[in-house]
Design a protein around this nucleic acid. Structure first.
Lengths: 99, 99
DNA sequence: TTACTTTTGACAAAATTGGTCAAAGCGAAT
DNA sequence: ATTCGCTTTGACCAATTTTGTCAAAAGTAA
């Protein structure tokens, strides 16, 4: 699974579009999009959805990519990252049962 | 795996201490500690470490509890939570290899 | 009721996020 | 070597979120 940044960079380059064009569609400065592609900034949820639409890409795939970036980021430097992810999974499972 | 809040509430009640006392040790208002115990506020990393020390509890256990709370929280309402966690795990594994 | 603890909500300061803008860096074409 | 368009970087700013205080309300036990 790629980072969201890599993924949208691929998509953009396949169409040979400049940052400017895609950024305009998202209504942000191209600088921000550049940073998103490189993982120096996080995209917002809304932006991910817009990007999926724009590139006619699978929305779920991009969301998973985006979410997992956030998760990975949050624990990456932690020694206990793996255990935390495992425990988080259980918590989420449990939460789902309640509904 | 319990939430951090539950865990420290257990620890505090076993010693029959009021919020006030533990909060004083953390140098925060008891209101904040109450909220942390109930999961209405997140603790800071530093606070988790202080709590482990205070209660002579296992630091790693509390950190995992705290981290997994954060992770679970971030994806809890997402349909794709499970897939995101799975993908995050791979990303973290990959990251570790690089070091 | 009184005395103590806990919970809640309004508020404020500090930190983080999400953006703009301008300048610098890079590559390809002339 | 210069220029042209695209990309990257960094300084700065506004808006949002976080982290805490304080005071009052709600519980609880004597």
């Amino acid at each position: 699974m790629d980072s969201l940044g890599n993924r949208i960079k691929q998509l953009r380059e396949k169409l040979e579009l400049p940052l400017r064009t895609v950024a305009a569609y998202l209504d942000i400065d191209q600088a921000v999009l550049s940073k998103i592609e490189h993982g120096h900034r996080k995209a917002t949820r809304e932006q991910v959805l817009q990007l999926a639409k724009y590139f006619k890409a699978d929305e779920d795939e991009l969301i998973v990519s985006w979410l997992s970036d956030k998760l990975a980021n949050e624990v990456q430097d932690e020694n206990l990252a793996k255990q935390a992810l495992k425990a988080a999974k259980k918590k989420v499972d449990n939460f789902k049962k309640k509904k």
